[in-house]
Design a binder for these strands. Structure first.
Lengths: 343, 343
DNA sequence: TCGTAACAATGAAACGATTCAAAGTTTGGA
DNA sequence: TCCAAACTTTGAATCGTTTCATTGTTACGA
């Protein structure tokens, strides 16, 4: 009723030595059939469950990987977490999840916690400057892989997404479908992702001599901010309007879409094409299903685990910075210009 | 470089006994100022970090609470998790999160894992029939609290939300703002939450002799399903339309809203009022900000931890089934009927 | 029948922290 | 100066598992 059964209890109950019980659990081939059966029966009868703390203590490390993300509420990270969990499970590890909530002190607390837990390794999407902590962990034999952040390959391994390439993809798609007067919506420009996506878009626009790119600052990256930008556009004279809009994320795009469709003079995609970024669940459910750029979240999570495994295997590993290219998802919001029905 | 420092290393380095180091960490008052300083300096110099596995082994249990939810991607659960983590942190425990993904075997795996980890207790939003497992855990001194599920108070503690009351609130609000021809959108009726919310709505409608409630089945609980129902409504003759619609969740409501606002003949809330359920982030960002029923997620998570603490404290605790009442959130989509502007 | 190789089973030692009875030290009153 | 009480410090025992050198057993060819 109180204390749960230990390996010793099992050994007594089955009339064998503790080492034998351990062998049944870890190296069944070393044990004779008869003994094995007896031990397994005892395990069942006593309801024995391994004590992981004792295993870890003996082993010197856990079978656990720490993962610290910026925001579990963000679908991007939720997807990465899931992929990492699945990949870790394949190699027999579990993932401990920490949510820093963009807060450096919460982040630091989680690093402390994971260090006490003797995690095998750490995946982190850092808030603050954690290089000192990471170096210190590595000295203790705990490797770290940076997630969604590009790292100097000489120092750390990392997995990240090429936002410049994503911006290029989006703008190129608008150009390829015949749009020439493009607008970029996003802000503040101090956010690296925003700046990179804009830069990629500019790169694409430069490829077409007759194309232009106007930059519209938004106050944040929310639906409301998008609606604000959209309302300004609606008030413009028809001739001053862009014919293709690239928003730095889907929330902005949905906001812009709300403004444009509420006034019933402008049609998406006939008059203005619209593309977002992230491919959130709502993109497909928008009034006009939203084209978007999909981040390879599954690959990010899986690869992070793989890089960690590489670091664990060799004593002095080469670090690798893996950069993924995002993917274009075409939906109705960037359908043919001046075209026909929008079923 | 390799092995990290143990309490023994610290003791040697500071020229004290291991017990003294332990006292510095756990009962600083028992140690003289001089000794304490010497030990702390040694801890710093060696970069000593407690080994949690060893602590647990000695203590017989971890300082960890297991939490298994149906879907981490669901904002409802994300919010509950966060509240539980905060409440647990206050009492010095950490939360291990498991995502069953509505899958009974993943659920079972997590229970196994948590049992090996010797969690102090378990919070679970169950998929399958886990009563046997829960009873077995309790016999071993691991109490369980059911989350988002009403349990027999004689057997288990639980925290849940009164969906009937939520349905009543929603319908009552529509009636209070003058609507009389109500419609309920949701399905399939086999989902308990849907059935309860409908029942609550019916209860409210019965209070008004001249009010009616029409039930519209939806194919699932998605935006798309809502749009399907909305499209059917739009085709009706004006006189056959409801003047207030209660959707079993916000996604459905957003879908219905899309249909009604796309055709520009029907206005929300002037012609038809619309209310959803869950108060997801997008509700406030909808074209017409959506009224909704907010679940007390914060209270759920916090209370679950508190009930668990109660069970941990006494050997033979009374179980408690705490039922929360959700909250009405009024926004523009249920503003005054036949009223004026919808800024 | 014997010797030996292959196979099984044993149980003490180790992992690192906490606990606690016992030993050692300090303090202050008589 | 002495003694008792209060305060510090000590270190062996303990938690439950894995490891591994050692011992015990079996099988089989000579």
């Amino acid at each position: 009723m109180n204390r749960s059964a230990s390996i010793k209890d099992v050994a007594n109950h089955a009339n064998v030595a503790v080492g034998t019980v351990s062998n049944v659990l870890n190296y069944p081939d070393r044990v004779s059939q008869r003994t094995k059966e007896r031990v397994l029966r005892a395990i069942n009868e006593l309801g024995f469950v391994r004590n992981d703390a004792a295993r870890q203590l003996r082993a010197g490390h856990s079978r656990t990987i720490g993962l610290i993300v910026l925001d579990v509420g963000n679908p991007f990270f939720t997807a990465v977490v899931r992929a990492a969990e699945d990949a870790a499970a394949l190699q027999g590890s579990a993932v401990l999840l920490g949510d820093s909530g963009h807060n450096a002190s919460r982040e630091s607390n989680y690093i402390d916690l994971f260090q006490e837990q003797r995690v095998q390794g750490l995946l982190i999407s850092p808030v603050g400057d954690v290089t000192a902590r990471i170096d210190q962990l590595r000295e203790r034999g705990v490797p770290t892989v940076l997630v969604d952040r590009l790292a100097d390959e000489n120092k750390y391994s990392s997995v990240s997404v090429d936002d410049d390439a994503g911006g290029y993809l989006a703008a190129r798609h608008l150009l390829d479908t015949g749009r020439r007067r493009l607008a970029f919506v996003g802000g503040p420009a101090s956010i690296r992702q925003v700046a990179d996506r804009l830069q990629g878009a500019q790169r694409a626009v430069k490829e077409e001599p007759d194309a232009t790119l106007e930059v519209l600052d938004s106050e944040g990256m929310t639906v409301l901010a998008g609606r604000g930008v959209g309302n300004l556009l609606v008030e413009r004279r028809r001739g001053d309007l862009p014919d293709g809009i690239f928003c730095a994320n889907d929330l902005l795009a949905l906001g812009v879409m709300q403004s444009l469709t509420m006034t019933h003079t402008l049609r998406i995609p006939e008059d203005i094409a619209l593309i977002g970024y992230d491919d959130i669940d709502f993109a497909v459910s928008a009034v006009v299903p939203l084209s978007s750029i999909r981040q390879p979240t599954e690959a990010l999570g899986r690869t992070a685990i793989e890089l960690l495994a590489e670091e664990l295997e060799s004593d002095n590993p080469k670090h690798r910075a893996v950069i993924f290219t995002p993917e274009l998802v075409v939906r109705q919001s960037t359908g043919p210009a001046q075209g026909s029905s929008a079923g």
